[in-house]
Simulated scan of single mutants.
Amino acid sequence: MNAVKRFGAATLLSLPLLAQATDIDKAAAIETQTVKAAAASQQRIDVSDEQAQSTKAEIEKLEREIENLTLYRNHLKSLVENQEQEQASLNQQLEEIALTRQGVVPLMYRMIDDLDVWVSQDLPIKSAQRQNRVDGLKTLMTRADVADAEKFRRILETYQIELDYGAKLGIYQETLPLDGVERDVDILHLGRLSLVARSLNGDAFWFYDQSTTKWLPVDKRAYEAIQQAFDVANKKQPPTLMALPLSISMVKGAAQ
């Protein structure tokens, strides 16, 4: 009986202990769940933070791209504006060139006509060569494959050549009708003042008389002085004072 009582008392005493153990287990389970939940929550927080950082980086990247695109757009806009200005300037220049060309082309034709008259009325210094040069300019003006600038340059070049004839002592050979006979002669010109022909053997001289447009014989007394001028032109002797018949009408009588 006593034993039964003791067992019963022990059972009664163990009930609070069992209840306490159950509460501890529950608390432990709750704690474990709480820790797990906290870990999961922290993981979600970490993932969310990484996503936020990634999103932030992406946003910053997009902002930089937008900034670069904005700068590039402004750059293109400036280029387009500049190209429009250049196009307007080119259009204006083309209009001015067209107007200038309308004035330059007639001017070139007049210059060639003046050259033609000049050569035909001038002393016959290399007349065939000079006339061919003028005729070449006339042909040049009709060529569409040659720029107007090149045509104008060639005309000015011809003018310079013509000017040089009037400032130089020159000598060349040509065939002329002299005294009714075709003769090969040496021709000397002192600018546009004197034009003299000499037979190849040096035994006769003629001078061109502009007033009659004829070659006239030179008095034999002037042969030595004229020969000296030929020697100077051929660089056989140094430059010196030369006595030459002038190819102008007022000295026709004096030269003979």
Rank of each mutant, 00 (worst) to 15 (best):
D179L: 12
L69H: 05
Y165V: 00
I24P: 05
V251A: 15
K214A: 08
Y72I: 11
D179K: 10
S211T: 08
F152N: 12
D114F: 10
Q129S: 01
S199L: 03
V196Y: 06
D49A: 13
I161R: 11
L62E: 08
A19L: 03
A222R: 04
L99V: 15
G8V: 14
A98W: 11
L246C: 01
G170Y: 00
A254L: 10
A9V: 13
V47G: 06
Q20H: 04
Q42D: 11
L200Q: 14
Y72M: 02
E157N: 12
Y159N: 15
V232Y: 00
I45M: 12
K138C: 07
K77V: 00
T11V: 14
L190D: 00
W215H: 11
F205R: 04
Y165C: 06
W215D: 02
D49Q: 15
T139H: 09
S127R: 10
L123D: 07
P177T: 02
L200K: 15
E86I: 10
A37M: 12
I59A: 07
Q129I: 13
I161P: 00
L200G: 04
V119M: 11
E157H: 14
T22V: 14
F230P: 02
Q228M: 09
L246I: 09
S14N: 01
R154C: 08
Q85D: 02
D209K: 05
V35R: 12
M108N: 13
D145M: 14
R154G: 03
K151A: 12
T22N: 08
V134Y: 00
T11G: 10
K61Y: 04
L244P: 07
L176D: 01
A222F: 09
Y223W: 09
I187H: 01
Q228P: 05
Y165H: 10
